[in-house]
């Protein structure tokens, strides 16, 4: 009869796993994201502050021209290892609208640590008008909102290898996945860029955003497209899931507690039931 439990368990795992719902067949992306090594992968993986700082620099100097990051406040940058003064100074580079003042007028002032990153466009319509009709999405949640279907059997295996980096893998693959040579069976509309890693088509409106040596990093990291794509993907994972480090640290304590508790309960159970045939 223990057999039944095992079988039910196996069936349950199969069902759960199917779960992800996931697996709905989809033609895009044409190419699956390429898996990268992330400092934050695995049960003990944590964010690499230096990498997040480089990612912030890339966002601030490139991406922010078109993409908002409205769910991140400057104060959140403390997670990246910046001091209060550094954050204040950084925030002061940005202007935010405030008001109304005593005369009922809106005015601009330098941002403070309490403000969110200002968005590049006042609204979606303005963003579309400036970008040939395409809307550059807010990047705050991108690393969780774009996670291409894993397909069978990957999604069954994922829980066992604790693979949860589909989002940053996707962003990295997209940023480094632009191809000049378009396959013959693909037609790329005027003004779009071919990218087989794009989640919802063969081409997207965003031009390849990263170029060799476009940045200089204080820590001497080489500004290759691949390095920069990785840094900004890691940064976006942090913007999407700022409490991941805390989550995994607490998780470890919870798991240790539960496993020790389970072992003690198992021994107690054995002891109690040893008095009776069952």
């Amino acid at each position: 009869m223990k057999n039944l439990v095992v079988k039910l368990g196996a069936a349950a795992i199969a069902v759960t796993v199917m779960a992800t719902g996931a697996w709905a067949a989809s033609a895009y992306p044409k190419n699956k994201p390429r898996e990268q090594d992330w400092s934050f992968a695995g049960p003990f993986g944590m964010y690499d502050q230096a990498q997040l700082q480089r990612g912030l620099k890339i966002y601030a100097e490139n991406c922010s021209a078109c993409h908002a990051l409205s769910r991140i406040n400057f104060r959140n940058l403390a997670d990246l290892g910046y001091s209060d003064d550094q954050i204040k100074a950084f925030a002061a580079n940005y202007e935010v609208e405030d008001g109304p003042d005593d005369f009922g007028d809106m005015f601009f002032r330098p941002a403070t640590a309490a403000d969110a990153f200002p968005s590049p466009f006042p609204n979606q319509e303005a963003a579309r008008a400036a970008n040939g009709g395409a809307y550059p999405p807010d990047l705050s949640l991108m690393a969780k909102a774009r996670a291409p279907i894993r397909g069978f059997p990957a999604f069954v295996i994922d829980p066992f290898r604790n693979y949860a980096e589909n989002g940053p893998d996707y962003i990295y693959s997209l940023l480094t996945g632009y191809k000049d040579e378009v396959p013959e069976d693909v037609s790329v509309p005027e003004g779009l860029w071919y990218n087989p890693y794009f989640a919802s088509g063969t081409a997207l409106a965003m031009a390849p955003p990263l170029f060799e040596d476009m940045h200089e990093f204080d820590d001497g990291t080489e500004a290759t497209v691949s390095n920069m794509a990785k840094d900004v993907s890691a940064f976006l994972m942090w913007t999407a899931e700022p409490h991941m480090d805390e989550r995994k640290q607490l998780g470890f304590r919870v798991m240790v507690f539960l496993l020790i508790f389970a072992a003690l309960l198992y021994l107690s159970k054995k002891q109690v039931w040893s008095r009776v045939e069952h």
């Binding site: 992800t20 049960p43 969780k144 774009r146 994922d158 829980p159 989550r247 995994k248 998780g251």
Partner: peptide, 10 residues
């Protein structure tokens, strides 16, 4: 704690 979004939808 380790795969909180695995069972959800992106």
């Amino acid at each position: 704690f380790y795969m909180p979004n695995f069972l959800g939808h992106a």
